[in-house]
Design a protein around this nucleic acid. Structure first.
Length: 153
DNA sequence: GCCAACGTTGGC
DNA sequence: GCCAACGTTGGC
């Protein structure tokens, strides 16, 4: 079992949006970064843990826990013309972009903010979220980091 | 709104 | 294959 952190802008899709979806599950479309895609394709298994992270907002941080609900499969939005995530170079017979289904588990009792995580940096050596210049929307989380972060709740 | 960091594109 | 230009991310 692996652990991940997945970013979403709450103005676009928040933890409450996920909780309100049918079956509390959403197809995580729109990932257009090869590293993030490869994490989904090569690393994710059903049942993996996910920290749901709110980015680009007033208090960026981890707001909830979710699970991976499917293995990776082609992201249909890459083929939809006029769609925000349309990719004219992707062919149905050779999909370029993948997604996974993500299922809501619970909200944290409180947001564990990026500022707080930075303050805990000494206890989280190598945590990619805290690395300079990190922009990846999907980040692997080591089990010891996962466990430690949950003790902060 | 600013800007640093980073990925991608495309000319050469 | 290099690298400048450009676009995007995301914290602040």
């Amino acid at each position: 079992m692996n652990y991940w952190l997945m970013k979403s802008e709450p103005d676009c899709f928040s933890i409450d949006d996920l909780a309100g979806r049918p079956n509390k599950t959403e197809a995580w479309d729109g990932v257009r970064n090869y590293q993030a895609r490869n994490f989904m394709r090569d690393g994710m298994k059903v049942g993996d843990g996910v920290f749901f992270y709110h980015s680009n907002c007033e208090i960026p941080g981890i707001v909830g826990v979710a699970t991976i609900a499917s293995t990776a499969y082609p992201d249909p939005t890459q083929f939809i013309q006029d769609h925000e995530h349309y990719d004219p170079t992707a062919k149905p017979e050779e999909p370029r972009w993948l997604l996974v289904d993500v299922k809501y588990q619970r909200k944290l009792k409180r947001t564990i903010s990026l500022a707080e995580l930075k303050a805990q940096e000494a206890a989280l050596p190598g945590f990619q979220l805290l690395m300079k210049g990190n922009r990846l929307s999907i980040i692997p989380v080591r089990k010891e980091h996962w466990d430690y972060i949950l003790t902060l709740e």
